[in-house]
């Protein structure tokens, strides 16, 4: 189980690095918003992982808050983006 947790942690770390690379490099602001949405999804997966490791349920509300923040963020970026790119 410990090995599995290390493996999952490293996979999540690699995934978040790739998403952050796209958020930094991304040619348009929409790519960045999308990449940061993925980063938030990976962060919520990591929160669930900490809950499983430490046997508590304190971060469940954070999952809802994270999905709300990601929704508001990407909708705001998409809504107020005009033709300038």
């Amino acid at each position: 189980m410990t090995i599995v947790i290390y493996v999952v942690q490293s996979i999540l770390a690699l995934a978040v690095m790739l998403a952050l690379y796209r958020a930094v490099v991304g040619p348009s602001i929409l790519d960045r918003a999308l990449a940061l949405d993925v980063v938030l999804a990976i962060i919520s997966a990591a929160l669930v992982l900490t809950m499983i490791v430490n046997h508590h349920l304190d971060h469940l509300i954070l999952l809802v808050v994270i999905s709300l923040v990601g929704f508001i963020g990407s909708v705001a970026v998409a809504r107020f983006l005009t033709d300038r790119g």
Partner: peptide, 23 residues
């Protein structure tokens, strides 16, 4: 433990797939 491990690794690979896809 086995079931939890399989589900966790599956979820982590979804994240990795998204990262590779974004890249």
């Amino acid at each position: 433990d086995v079931i939890v491990s399989i589900l966790l690794i599956g979820g982590a690979f979804m994240s990795l797939a998204a990262g590779i896809g974004l890249l």
